[in-house]
Design a protein around this nucleic acid. Sequence first.
DNA 1: TCTTTATATAACTATTCTGTTATATAAAGG
DNA 2: CCTTTATATAACAGAATAGTTATATAAAGA
Lengths: 112, 112
Amino acid sequence: MATLDSAFSALADPTRRALLARLALGEASVMELAEPFEMTQPAISRHLKVLEGAGLIIRRVEGTRRPCRLAPAAISEIDQWLGMLRQALAKNYDRLDDVLATMKPRKRKPRR
Amino acid sequence: MATLDSAFSALADPTRRALLARLALGEASVMELAEPFEMTQPAISRHLKVLEGAGLIIRRVEGTRRPCRLAPAAISEIDQWLGMLRQALAKNYDRLDDVLATMKPRKRKPRR
DNA sequence: TCTTTATATAACTATTCTGTTATATAAAGG
DNA sequence: CCTTTATATAACAGAATAGTTATATAAAGA
């Protein structure tokens, strides 16, 4: 799914995760978001564009400012996908495989 | 965190997510994993290497085969990080911001 | 109207992916 | 031994990233 592609790859960048962490505290403008970073403003603007494109944030127009805040949509989609893995792990499929692998060692000949 | 970087960017690729989905059904060898894809074996091998590097899978050695299965570590770290966003969203910080934004329209002058 | 402030966009560069083919390695099996 | 099978690795090409500087735009305010 294209949404998961963009959401996960948006989250893969530490700057973008930091921006989201900041937004978890509440809405902020581009300049406010850029302030803690050693990066130029255009760089932050582009990171925000990526986050917006991934459905992780939404923006308002307020005069010359574009306040951003977290958007719920993408997160829930990610959660849903991870749910599959969580479930597989919880069911101990891995441990079961361990047992099976030990019990039936797939025609292995003793050395020489 | 470096782990989150590699875990999220590993998940950003649809082929890798498909490999994980397959592994959610149980352990599989490289060839078994490669079979459904139109990609060459080296390409799959590299995707698996990425998944392993991200802590999303682990591999055994069994003769010439390298059976893979899901690993729990990375997932739980991701879950933990996403928890922060989930919480922020759940607390309706966004909705609160809405209200505040409407109530105190940040020194905006009426046109002209 | 002129200046400042907030933000976006373009052009460019360096680096990092993703896939390919060709080849290496090592165990399995006759 | 020799061949086959499973997998890894190297070398390479093309696409996508992330950052930079320079510049555009548009609202705010004097």
